[in-house]
Amino acid sequence: MEMRELVAEDLELVEFARGIVDANTDGEFGVHTMGAAVREADGRMFGGINLYHFLGGPCAELVALGNARASGGREFTTIVAVGNFNRGPVGPCGRDRQILFDYHTGIRVILPTDQGIRSVRITDLMPLAARWDPDTGTQPFDPTP
């Protein structure tokens, strides 16, 4: 797996996503707890925020991708989701990974790893799954079985 340290453009994207969730969160247990940002190949950034629902409302990454597409974006280079209350970048869920893999095979994902926050190719995350639990959420990638 090729993990890259974040560059200035990546940090800008993280801050853009953080700004979205900070401006729109509605509390620790609210429905708007994750912000996301995606970068178009031409440098434009598009954002989104999740809408949690017991039926499985849309994740922030999917909202950001939909916003980007509706705004004319077609070729995406990088995506990140950031939790409210300074939780920082969080890796995409399995559904989001599959959608990114299916539609944007060249995209890089910013997420926590055992080496810190890094960007990885979506193809490196598939078919591997992220461990998730209700107490701590999505965990950093762990290559051990």
Results as ranks from 00 to 15, higher is better:
residue 31 V to Q: 14
residue 46 F to W: 05
residue 89 P to Q: 05
residue 85 F to E: 13
residue 51 L to K: 11
residue 53 H to Q: 04
residue 89 P to M: 05
residue 23 A to K: 15
residue 81 A to C: 13
residue 57 G to N: 02
residue 90 V to Y: 06
residue 105 T to E: 15
residue 26 D to T: 12
residue 72 G to K: 01
residue 35 G to L: 09
residue 97 R to I: 15
residue 67 N to R: 09
residue 50 N to C: 15
residue 25 T to D: 13
residue 39 R to L: 08
residue 90 V to C: 08
residue 89 P to C: 08
residue 61 E to H: 11
residue 21 V to E: 14
residue 80 V to Q: 06
residue 25 T to K: 13
residue 32 H to I: 07
residue 67 N to G: 06
residue 76 F to T: 00
residue 94 G to P: 01
residue 66 G to F: 15
residue 27 G to T: 12
residue 81 A to D: 03
residue 92 P to I: 02
residue 19 G to S: 13
residue 43 G to Q: 11
residue 107 I to S: 04
residue 84 N to S: 14
residue 30 G to P: 09
residue 49 I to S: 11
residue 34 M to G: 00
residue 53 H to C: 06
residue 19 G to N: 15
residue 87 R to I: 00
residue 63 V to C: 04
residue 34 M to R: 04
residue 70 A to F: 01
residue 50 N to R: 11
residue 20 I to V: 14
residue 47 G to C: 07
residue 47 G to Y: 06
residue 72 G to Q: 05
residue 56 G to H: 03
residue 95 R to G: 08
residue 81 A to H: 04
residue 86 N to R: 09
residue 107 I to W: 02
residue 33 T to L: 07
residue 25 T to Q: 15
residue 83 G to F: 07
residue 79 I to N: 03
residue 63 V to E: 11
residue 62 L to S: 09
residue 107 I to E: 04
residue 24 N to C: 02
residue 83 G to I: 05
residue 34 M to W: 10
residue 75 E to I: 02
residue 46 F to K: 02
residue 69 R to C: 12
residue 96 D to H: 09
residue 38 V to A: 05
residue 25 T to N: 15
residue 46 F to Q: 03
residue 94 G to K: 01
residue 71 S to T: 00
residue 87 R to D: 02
residue 47 G to L: 07
residue 84 N to P: 01
residue 91 G to F: 07
residue 63 V to A: 08
residue 76 F to C: 00
residue 80 V to C: 08
residue 75 E to G: 03
residue 54 F to H: 05
residue 45 M to I: 08
residue 68 A to Q: 06
residue 44 R to I: 04
residue 78 T to E: 09
